[in-house]
Amino acid sequence: MHSAAAGFLEMGRFVGPATASDTPEVDVFRTLLDRSGLLLAGLDLQMCLVEASDEFVGQFGTSRESLIGSSFYELLHPGVHAPMRRQFTRLLEGRRERFVEHLAGVGPRRTVFTGEIAGIAVHSQCRELVGFVVLVNPEQTEPADAVVVDRNRILSEIGARILEGIAGGESTVCLASRLFLSRQGVEYHVGTMLKKLKAPNRAALVSRAYSLGVLTVGSWPPKVSPDFVK
């Protein structure tokens, strides 16, 4: 776990029952929000943003006015919506108090960045759930490595089938035979995906696809999420 996320969750141990002075957790969050350098945001129970640090606003490349009140899911790549909803549902139902999850977010100029997100449930003095606090830890990558994609659709139907085959270990010859393509046709589609996902080779292409949520985690044979297919 990234050290910042670990520190955030450690602080979350104290964002629990009201303190001796009856300071609600919301006040604790506001104190955290003022900490320099942290990409922190507060969400209500409908997953809309109610507060955000300057660093958080800058990471997602939007204005504070357009950010506050919008759905948190609008800032995420569709491929991570399902696991993120599962995590927040656990918080909402009281089955967990905090989590750390993989993140694929959409930043400035539609660039997709990956990293980690940590979240905790926020309670009032009466221990009533009032919202959530999230901390985003983006991976430190060079700007040239940033993947620029449409928020929803980045692969053709045939490209998706080829990516699934590559992830499953199929050769170019096998893919060409199964998909009724020439070997050159398969290589063309592979080359297009390598450029689109900024990957140097097929192994990196599969790794990047899983990182961005294009390939569904826990599925075998490998499956491309429908959210990414034109």
Rank of each mutant, 00 (worst) to 15 (best):
Q46R: 06
T89N: 14
H81P: 01
R64C: 11
L91N: 09
S63G: 14
G61I: 07
G79D: 01
I68K: 06
V80C: 00
G61F: 09
D54G: 14
E65F: 10
V57I: 15
C48V: 00
H77N: 04
G61M: 06
Q59A: 14
F60E: 12
T89D: 15
R85E: 14
S71H: 12
P78I: 02
M84Y: 03
P78F: 00
F72H: 04
E74T: 09
F88M: 12
V80M: 02
V80G: 03
C48P: 00
V50T: 15
E74C: 02
G61N: 02
F88N: 07
S66R: 15
L49S: 05
R90V: 07
E51P: 01
A52H: 08
S70L: 02
L91I: 12
F56E: 11
T89Y: 13
T89H: 15
E55M: 08
G69H: 08
F88R: 11
E65P: 06
Q46D: 08
G58Q: 13
G61D: 06
S71R: 04
R90T: 11
E55H: 12
G61K: 05
F72T: 00
V80H: 01
L91F: 10
R85F: 12
Q87I: 06
L67Y: 04
V57E: 03
F88D: 07
Q87K: 10
L67H: 08
E51A: 15
M47A: 04
T89A: 14
Y73L: 12
V80I: 04
Y73H: 07
G69Y: 09
S63F: 06
S71V: 00
Q46S: 09
F72A: 09
Q46E: 11
F56P: 15
H81T: 02
V57T: 14
R90L: 15
S70D: 06
L76Y: 05
F56N: 05
T89V: 10
G61H: 13
A52Q: 08
M84E: 05
A52M: 02
Y73G: 03
F88A: 10
P83Y: 06
S63M: 08
R64L: 10
S66E: 15
S63K: 11
M84Q: 10
A82Y: 06
G58K: 14
R85A: 08
S66C: 13
L75R: 08
P83M: 04
F56R: 07
V57F: 09
L49K: 01
H81A: 01
E65D: 13
P83D: 01
Y73V: 05
E55T: 11
H81N: 03
S63D: 11
Q46P: 00
A52E: 10
